[in-house]
């Protein structure tokens, strides 16, 4: 059973969280420094989100399929959810193709230290924004 039953809720949760990261200098500054433009393609429920760090500010654009991105990551919504709790073994997820990445690998990996603080932020974010029911890890 998928954690998020509905597209709208998942979109709210994930876009809201990306925006929170964008407003958190500790995370955002390093992402902006990387100039990364990444599209997440989620399934079950389906959703595409572009996180654009090429400008002065992190720009989060749901349903953007047009922007030419540097990296594209595809995964189930559940895996993404688990990932933000810091509970995904990234090596295994990539090996077993639970996450599929297209684009320059080193650039993706370099972002990992930048987003490390977000694992602690995610459960708190869920609780503070009325999504406590999804705080299951």
């Amino acid at each position: 059973m998928a954690v998020f039953k509905n597209h709208e809720v998942f979109k709210e949760v994930i876009v809201g969280f990306f925006n929170l990261l964008g407003d958190t200098p500790q995370v955002a500054d390093r992402l902006l420094a990387s100039k990364m433009v990444i599209r997440f393609i989620y399934s079950d429920p389906d959703l595409a989100v572009v996180v654009d760090c090429s400008g002065d500010k992190m720009d989060v654009r749901p349903d953007d399929m047009d922007t030419k991105v540097i990296v594209e990551m595809s995964m189930k919504a559940d895996i993404a959810h688990k990932f933000w709790f810091g509970k995904v073994n990234l090596t295994m997820a990539l090996t077993r193709r639970q996450m599929v990445a297209k684009g320059p690998v080193p650039k993706i990996l370099k972002l990992l230290p930048a987003i490390k603080p977000s694992y602690a932020m995610y459960p708190k974010y869920l609780d503070d924004n009325g999504y406590a029911q999804y705080n299951i890890h």
Binding site: G86, L90, T91, V105, P106, I108, L109, K110, K116
Partner: peptide, 22 residues
């Protein structure tokens, strides 16, 4: 293979960024 790509670019120390998460 992203695993191969990662050790190609950073060597075994690539694991420092990945292993710390879990």
């Amino acid at each position: 293979s992203i695993y191969i790509g990662s050790i190609q670019s950073a060597g075994t120390p690539a694991h420092l960024d990945v292993g710390i998460i879990t």
